[in-house]
Nucleic acid binder design. Structure first.
Lengths: 209, 209
DNA sequence: TTTGGAATATTTACACTGTTAAGTAAATTT
DNA sequence: AAATTTACTTAACAGTGTAAATATTCCAAA
């Protein structure tokens, strides 16, 4: 059936348009300025048409949240080249911080806003993207332990500790909580990096007998 | 002038009523359910009256944010009894985590939402509460270093690292990002504690020559 | 005691928000 | 060509924060 197929494609095309318009608003004007009506303006359809393609606004944000993970994943491709697992861990942390600071709105959606997670449980499925990222962290940590770069300990606890640290760094910075600790804007990123370096150095036992 | 004085008191009284109503809504129904109109319903005034006592909604939230810090400060009074600075650091972290998990809405306002910080720069003043808390952390760390409990390093960097870790723990937990890592709800708090314990143990060099 | 003015409170209104239900026009099938 | 399905729009509801205009209350001076 050629017609049904074409229709299917048209439907996907409009879906794509909606997401692109949302993304544009989202990146250029931030989370709070993405409204159904403004999306509708951009794609030149009436606001209610959007509901024929997405259940509600949160479903749009859920999709944007997934795009964010794709972006991060892309950034992390370079990690495969790093054989030393501790160096890889360090670079992984740097990428995470850089991603968060350069894409604060995406970061919000991925790790701060409640909506995407609620959508997830509503749809009864798993947080595949987040879990994949977490698994990568954990695997790297286990490798570090096996090769004697860091002390042996519960990998889950350690994953949580490290993720919390980098997430804490990014979210405190993007939510303006570091203005006293780091008064000048241009020093924020270096400071976050220093903090991460401290963490990795503290973990490192390879040079300590 | 007895009359002017009484009027002053009445004005403060209504201010207090507004804040109490906001707090009630805030604690019982959460951030997003605090609206000017609902506050007005509770205090039995028209919505616009509120603007005679607060410049805008964010100013109300700014005040709630300060109340949150008072609550946390109250919780931290017990810290004075702990002479061992490393133990004190540990307890400080536990209090922080407990406060965040038990008062997620306050925590939001204090460390996640952007509004209170924007209000702050708008008013041209400092984040006294946050800074005071940070100073306590830093002082404790310096004491730990001086007494040989932890390795000597830049106290600012270390303050940031530790704060980031505990903030990361609380915010990932309250924003539903740990559901894969810690599937059962009742295990979340213990897990956060374990993560903190790992951090403190890693810092501790007192038993290592 | 009455009057004028300041302080306080309310009404009305604007410009938004997400979302639903009903109505319409076009495309496709019968 | 008529009937039916699909795609889309219009109108509407129930909210939101907030500004301006209006009304009311209160107190001090004439």
């Amino acid at each position: 059936m050629g017609i049904a197929e074409r229709k299917e494609k048209q439907k996907l095309e409009i879906r794509k348009q909606i997401l692109e318009a949302s993304m544009k608003l989202f990146v250029e004007e931030g989370f709070s300025n993405v409204s159904i009506r403004r999306i509708a303006d951009i794609i030149e359809y009436s606001p209610t048409t959007i509901y024929l393609y997405f259940k509600d606004k949160d479903e749009i944000f859920y999709n944007l949240h997934e795009m964010g993970f794709q972006k991060l994943q892309e950034m992390n491709k370079s990690l495969d080249d790093i054989h030393n697992p501790l160096l890889r861990l360090h670079k992984m942390g740097e990428n995470y911080i850089q991603f968060g600071m350069e894409n604060p709105e995406f970061y919000d959606l991925m790790f701060i806003q409640r909506e995407p997670m609620e959508k997830l449980t509503e749809m009864g499925c798993e947080w595949q993207n987040g879990e994949a990222a977490l698994t990568r962290l954990r695997d790297t940590l286990v490798e570090c332990m096996e090769k004697g770069y860091i002390a042996k300990t519960d990998p889950t606890v350690l994953s949580l500790s490290i993720w919390s640290t980098v997430h804490g760094l990014v979210s405190l910075a993007t939510r303006q909580r570091l203005e006293k600790l780091v008064p000048e804007k241009e020093n924020v990123m270096p400071m976050l990096r220093q903090s991460l370096t401290w963490l990795v150095n503290t973990l490192d036992i390879s040079g300590k007998g």
